[in-house]
Amino acid sequence: MRITKILNNNAVVVMDGDEEKIAIGAGVGYEKKNKDIVNKVKIEKLFVSKESEKLQQLLLRIPEEHFMITEEIIAYAEENLGTKLNDHIRIALTDHISFAIDREKQGIHIKNKLLPEIKVLYKKEFDIGLWAIQHIENKFNMRIPIDEAAFIALHVHAMKIQGGDLHEIVRQTSVLKNMVQTINQKLSIKVESDDIAYERLIHHLRFAMIRLKDNEHHTMDDEMFQMIKRKFPIAYDCAASVAQELSAKHDIHLPEDELGYITLHIERLRNK
């Protein structure tokens, strides 16, 4: 393999046969020049990426150690999730982590308003995020706020093969947060994110939205639905307010069956 471009001391672009690849390894590019042969012993990782040009640009403008620590986080995530992540995470997460480290060095702390929801909805990914911020803290001797664990969790979830678009995941999580806020305001209560009743509610709301997207929904016979309305009028009124808010703000329309189940979850919160 011969070098076609030197990105930094630890990253070079090489030609492997007819295929362009990015070789990563300690000192792989040190005192090298174009057309030199790569010392294969120094290559730790070899990437073939559809987004090779973007990855090269990223490696040219961020510190090498930011890329390397992101690689360690990705490896940890894939091992713990038992799945390969989408190749794009190498760009998206590296860029995010590098920017986050720079921000923290400057004393700029960004709050993640979806932190409580992310902790519940994406628990495995959030645990990976917690490990990641601890790993960054140990490596760079700096404090990283827990909000970053939630940001990293979203990136990891979005890059799972079955994950989805990051913007859509953030939108859905924001909608869920708005629904919980409506319940808080309507009932004049504070729903705590570590409460098991909250976890049940947020999971039900999430899957209700997924069912709507897939044109599916829970079925509840009318007699049961009418009984729930009569027995829990305050909780039902609250559920109806959530549905109205969803319709007005997000053009999402909950069927009555879903309102019945949501009413039961809200009643649990009221009983607490």
Rank of each mutant, 00 (worst) to 15 (best):
M1P: 10
M1K: 12
M1S: 09
K5D: 11
I6V: 15
L7T: 08
N10E: 07
V12H: 11
V12E: 04
E19A: 05
G29Y: 04
G29R: 04
N34H: 01
N34Y: 04
I43Q: 05
L46E: 10
S49F: 13
K50G: 15
E53T: 13
L55K: 05
Q57N: 14
Q57T: 06
L60W: 06
R61H: 08
R61L: 08
R61W: 06
E64T: 15
E65G: 05
F67E: 06
T70C: 13
A75Q: 11
A77C: 04
A77V: 06
I89M: 00
A92L: 12
T94V: 00
D95Q: 05
D95R: 00
S98D: 04
S98A: 15
D102G: 06
R103C: 08
E104M: 12
E104S: 07
H109V: 02
H109R: 09
H109I: 14
K111R: 14
K111S: 07
L114E: 10
L115T: 09
E117L: 12
K123F: 08
E125S: 05
F126V: 02
D127K: 13
I128H: 02
G129P: 11
A132K: 02
I133A: 01
Q134V: 05
N138K: 15
N141D: 12
A150E: 00
A153Q: 05
L154N: 01
H155V: 05
I161S: 08
Q162D: 15
L166C: 07
L166R: 13
H167W: 06
H167E: 14
V175M: 07
L176T: 03
L176F: 06
M179V: 08
T182W: 03
I183N: 04
S193E: 15
D194C: 04
Y198R: 10
I202H: 06
I202N: 05
H203T: 10
A208G: 10
M209D: 03
K213T: 11
H218W: 12
M224A: 12
Q226W: 06
Q226Y: 09
Q226M: 11
I228A: 10
K229E: 07
R230V: 03
K231G: 03
A235E: 07
A243R: 15
Q244T: 14
L246K: 10
S247A: 14
H250S: 06
L254F: 15
E258Q: 11
L259I: 07
Y261A: 09
H265I: 01
R268D: 11
